[in-house]
Design a protein around this nucleic acid. Sequence first.
DNA 1: CTACAAGCTCAACTTAACTTGAGGTCAAGC
DNA 2: GCTTGACCTCAAGTTAAGTTGAGCTTGTAG
Lengths: 147, 147
Amino acid sequence: MTPARELTVGQVAMRSGVAVSALHFYEARGLIRSHRTSGNQRRYSRDVLRRVAIIRVAQEVGISLAEIAAVFQSLPEERTPTREDWNLLSTAWRDGLDHKISQLKKLRDGLTDCIGCGCMSIDKCPLRNREDRLAREGTGARRLAVR
Amino acid sequence: MTPARELTVGQVAMRSGVAVSALHFYEARGLIRSHRTSGNQRRYSRDVLRRVAIIRVAQEVGISLAEIAAVFQSLPEERTPTREDWNLLSTAWRDGLDHKISQLKKLRDGLTDCIGCGCMSIDKCPLRNREDRLAREGTGARRLAVR
DNA sequence: CTACAAGCTCAACTTAACTTGAGGTCAAGC
DNA sequence: GCTTGACCTCAAGTTAAGTTGAGCTTGTAG
């Protein structure tokens, strides 16, 4: 038998390492797509594996499913994404990742310099100033504090 | 009047930028401590500001409150933490941050090299391999996949 | 001494990202 | 042709990290 061109949800789960329920969930959220067999079972094209891999990697670095979905909107619905399509994603996220990396570095250095330094003047502390800048990106507490 | 040595929740909220309800919550979780006035109101010593700053910064980089609480267990309960005490935290987290930074770099490079590359063989793809390693640290989906 | 802003407690609600369970269908091997 | 494991749907449960609201108490400024 020729290897099946389409994957069942179980196969995708096994190969991608995410639970079947999570795949259902991603589909409900519009992150992946499937078509159905005559018996109403999902069948996935191979590029779903790439999508799922990207979803997991992106989540790992703190990107929410909503944000991932937003970027995925730029991918074509009907054809398998081309190199150019993926390149757009890559570019979009590389900026975000660069930003996160620089933040983490600042934090690491801040922890070294400031938490370890024993200074008690939190207002003048670089760590505190750093936090103020981060706060500007809003975590919920900030929204409250600002209004 | 001499400036109050102790802070009320409202003052801590204002100076730290987190909501009063969040401070209550942190206290319930054992992340910060307060003592009470005769009228049952909370009063904080100044080092709570440092603790809250650390909590926020740590959260920003994806450390959960539970993990923060765990590290905070190493701080003394009764005395104000010394330089040495904070140094322990700093060391504990610096390793984690270094790890996260290297992960992010790998991801950024993986996105550049692999997502953009257009290759469709997800099993041999460095991005996919990277994800497998990350999966070992468990996100929930993995627990299911493993059992 | 009285308003009224700030605090207090406790329970319930919120969002994200899934998982679990119930009740029923599909398909592949013996 | 039947059994068994994979699927399906839909609703409800779960965890993290808080927020919101109700009902009641404190403390401070005029």
